[in-house]
Amino acid sequence: MSEAFSFELVSPEALVLGGEASEVVVPGTEGYFTVLANHSAFMTTVKPGIVDVKMSDGEAKRIFVRGGFADVSPTGFTLLAEQATMLEDFDMEELEKAIQEARDIIAESEGEKKAKAEALLTQLEDSKSAVAMAISQ
């Protein structure tokens, strides 16, 4: 049994998950990383993907996050996610629709708006592939 540390996953709308965790895998912008107890203080940005949490009572949770921040401090690990959904609640159709909308905007507009939509599209497609991979596993 590995040591536990306090873990919090917060989205702007609510505290999604909080409690004692023994292991958390996070999709950082510079690559996936795993946080265990007594991790050194560390801060990074997070890209869209799946967060794997092992709670200290052995329960495993998989949560989809869409961008955010990870703040690992000696007192615990806080993940500030822009959007967080439990994987089992994830709505693939909604994502497909958002992707389609982004594509439409790219096709119709130009300049700054197009660039923004393109950035959004890459973000959404990243999300899609991450979710698809997680589900197929």
Partner: peptide, 19 residues
């Protein structure tokens, strides 16, 4: 309490702040 903790930043401190 964070004062005496040395954070590691990834990518850099400025990039994170900019985000």
């Amino acid at each position: 309490e964070a004062d005496d903790v040395n954070y590691e930043y990834e990518p850099g401190e400025e990039e994170i702040l900019e985000d």
